[in-house]
């Protein structure tokens, strides 16, 4: 009899985990190993779904009006199209362009200047109010703790009956980690499933020679910090990476952005100064401003004919991944919000 009780006890204790379907993070063919440490935050479907809810839920903002998705919209590769934000939460958010969110498992540093050192703690930045730094995340967690709806989900996803800050952040990470974009035309060409047009091929050749030292395949970013010669905006006076490292050689360096889905993630650059890819190419041919920290590759001016520019843009458009932009798994979680018991 006692044996039966012990076995039943063990079953009860482990069942919390047993019913959760774990999620296998797949690395696309020929991609490098992700840098995110999944052992410390093992993904499961429930936690991903929970994270997706949190991402779309304005409960994360002080006045319950703004969610992560207000600035990171799926159809624009999780960036926002409207640069001038009337409703920003933090002053700095108004001065920087929201980057596209994708392939985050391969990034070590986040934000244009790398101010954030780990994906898990990224969400704290927009959540916190500038005047109450470090104060309002407590109240977000408190709001979640009071909601019966989230209580159930945290229990299922993390076996956490109390809702901790740690698990709130880890759930958001789990959702963001699933935002992998690896199904563009470029990828299918690499997998020998389709072919570039002659124009795209010419563009690809020019790209490999001039751009790929920074916008490195297959992620289309080295994720290093570089100065690509943008004239400094007097209004914003954004000195980039040096604000974090205090190294002089980091002045005016910004994180190299990935060019995947670039067709949809306009406006471009850290301050959103360019609206079109043709303006970006004109910058690389005519607009480079020399300075002490300008990248060596850009010191010699690039010269592209008008046709070559069109070729490069044609290639850049092959980086659009419709399966990513329209994947219903990344969208607004209608089903879950509707079944919420107390909303």
């Amino acid at each position: 009899m006692r044996k039966v009780i012990i076995i039943a006890l063990i079953l009860c204790l482990t069942s919390g985990y047993a019913f959760i379907k774990s999620y296998e993070f797949t690395v696309p063919e020929n991609w490098p190993k992700p840098v995110y440490n999944f052992n410390k935050n093992p993904p499961n479907f429930t936690a991903i779904e929970l994270g997706r809810n949190l991402f779309y839920d304005p409960i994360l903002s002080k006045d319950n009006t703004i969610s992560c998705a207000s600035c990171h919209l799926q159809y624009t590769a999780f960036t926002h199209v409207d640069h001038a934000l009337s409703h920003g939460i933090n002053d700095r958010i108004g001065t920087r362009n929201a980057p596209a969110l994708m392939n985050l498992a391969w990034q070590r540093q986040f934000m244009w200047d790398g101010a954030i050192n780990h994906l898990d703690v990224q969400a704290l930045a927009p959540i916190n109010h500038p005047d109450e730094m470090g104060e309002s995340f407590d109240s977000v967690v408190f709001k979640l703790q009071k909601s019966k709806y989230y209580k159930k989900w945290f229990l299922l996803a993390f076996n956490d009956s109390n809702i901790s800050g740690e698990h709130t952040l880890k759930a958001i990470s789990q959702f963001m980690l699933t935002l992998v974009s690896s199904n563009s035309k470029y990828d299918s060409v690499k997998r020998h499933q389709s072919k570039f047009t002659a124009q795209e091929k010419r563009g690809y050749q020019l790209f490999k020679i001039n751009c790929s030292s920074c916008h490195t395949e297959p992620l289309f970013s080295s994720y290093q910090f570089e100065n690509n010669g943008l004239p400094i905006s007097n209004e914003l006076k954004d000195s980039g990476r040096i604000r974090i490292t205090h190294y002089l050689q980091d002045a005016f360096k910004f994180k190299v952005p990935s060019l995947r889905n670039i067709e949809f993630s306009y406006p471009y650059m850290h301050d959103g100064r360019f609206k079109k890819l043709s303006e970006v190419l004109n910058h690389y041919t005519q607009g480079i401003q020399s300075s002490e920290t300008l990248a060596a590759q850009l010191r010699k001016p690039m010269a592209f004919s008008a046709n070559e520019k069109v070729d490069i843009i044609a290639f850049l458009l092959t980086l659009t991944d419709k399966t990513f932009l329209f994947n219903p798994k990344f969208g607004y979680p209608k089903k879950i919000f509707n079944t919420s018991p107390n909303k």
Partner: peptide, 9 residues
């Protein structure tokens, strides 16, 4: 981080 001892920006 909900202990209020973590910087956000």
């Amino acid at each position: 981080p909900s202990k209020g001892m973590y910087w956000s920006w």
